[in-house]
Structures are given as C-alpha cells and as structure tokens.
C-alpha cells in the first residue's frame, strides 16, 4: 500500500509539473518548474534502486543542462515574451496528435509481456553496490560506446563554440 501511495505522489507531481513547464508564459518560470521536475524524477529513480542514475540526473540535468538553459533565457532578455501569445495557431492539431499517440501507446502497454529476468537481482546489486555493478558492465561490455560518447561530447564542445561565436573581422 505504501509503495503505491509513494508512486502515486510522484506520478501526480511529475505529470502536473510537466504540464506547468509547457504552459508557462515566462521561460524562467518554466526552467524553475523543470528543476523541481528533475528532482522528482531523481526521487523516482531512487525508488527503483538506481542510485547512480539518480545522482547523475541531479548533477547533469539539474546542475548543468538547466543552468545552460537559464543562461540562454537571461541572455536573450525576453521582455516582450510576456505580452505575446504562447501557442501557434494550429495548437488543437498538436493536441489531437499527442492525445492519439498517448492512447495508442497506453493500449499497447496493456499487452506487454516481460522477458525472462537477468542476473542483476536486488541482492546482487546490494552486495556489489550499484555504482560498482554498473561500472563493471559499462567498462567491459559497453567500452566502445563509452568511447564514442566522449567523442560526441568533444563534437558538442567545438560545435557550440563555433556556432555561438561572432564573426571575426580581419
């Protein structure tokens, strides 16, 4: 009973905050609600025994990505944003598309059957600690994708500098 209540709290708050994020007029308010949303999602990850993912959710999403969003919002100085309308003219079409896709996905989820379970049971993770168990899989089986991820980050660093810099006058 108590886990279901806990999940219910998180589900209601996450849905409510998501709706708040996409409907606020002021982008700064959206960023602040998103900060609260990321902390709630991190709490949900803790509830699912994924401590390391919860930690990097808070550090990378709430600490890095949202600060980047906040910087850009403050840089653009959007005084007139508060007076203009928020949605494009054809927003009912977007609502129909999203609601239709949601109906399809929820109906598909009903017929879901689980695959056989793997070896990483809760007892195994409790003995090995979560970060160690995750690191062992990441650095053996997924070493090559891990190296590619570092390359993607390098491309992002260089690309962001090249795109955002002003043109040099010679």
């Amino acid at each position: 009973m108590l886990p279901k209540l806990f999940f219910g709290y998180y589900a209601v708050v996450i849905t409510f905050l998501s709706v708040l994020i996409i409907t606020r007029k002021n982008p700064v308010h959206s960023v602040m609600w998103m900060l609260l949303l990321f902390f709630h999602i991190a709490g949900l990850y803790l509830f699912l025994n994924a401590e390391f993912i919860a930690a990097i959710q808070v550090i990378v999403y709430a600490g890095a990505i949202l600060v980047l969003f906040l910087f850009v919002v403050l840089l653009l100085n959007l005084r007139e944003e508060l007076q203009v309308k928020r949605f494009v003219g054809s927003w009912p079409a977007g609502l129909i598309i999203a609601a239709g896709m949601l109906a399809i996905v929820v109906n598909v989820i009903k017929s879901f059957t689980a695959a056989p379970r793997g070896i990483y049971s809760i007892e195994y993770i409790k003995n090995a600690t979560h970060t160690k168990a995750l690191g062992q899989v990441l650095y053996t089986e997924y070493l090559f994708p891990f190296e590619i991820a570092s390359l993607i980050l390098l491309v992002a660093i260089i690309g962001a500098i090249v795109l955002a810099k002003r043109k040099l006058r010679s």
């Binding site: 996409i22 999403y61 969003f69 879901f112």
Partner: peptide, 30 residues
Amino acid sequence: LTLGAVVFMIGVFGFLTRRNIIIMFMSVEL
C-alpha cells in the same frame, strides 16, 4: 510505463504547439 508515456506525450504536445524555441527545446528534454 504509462507515466513515462504521459510525460513523453506532454513533451510532444509542447514541441508541436509552443512558439518559443527555448520551450520547444525543454519539451525535447521532457
């Protein structure tokens, strides 16, 4: 899985309908 689908579809709705490109990017994160 239903909660994940709901959050995803709220993001789809925001991406398709908002005029502000920053909020569209936040919908992608959602």
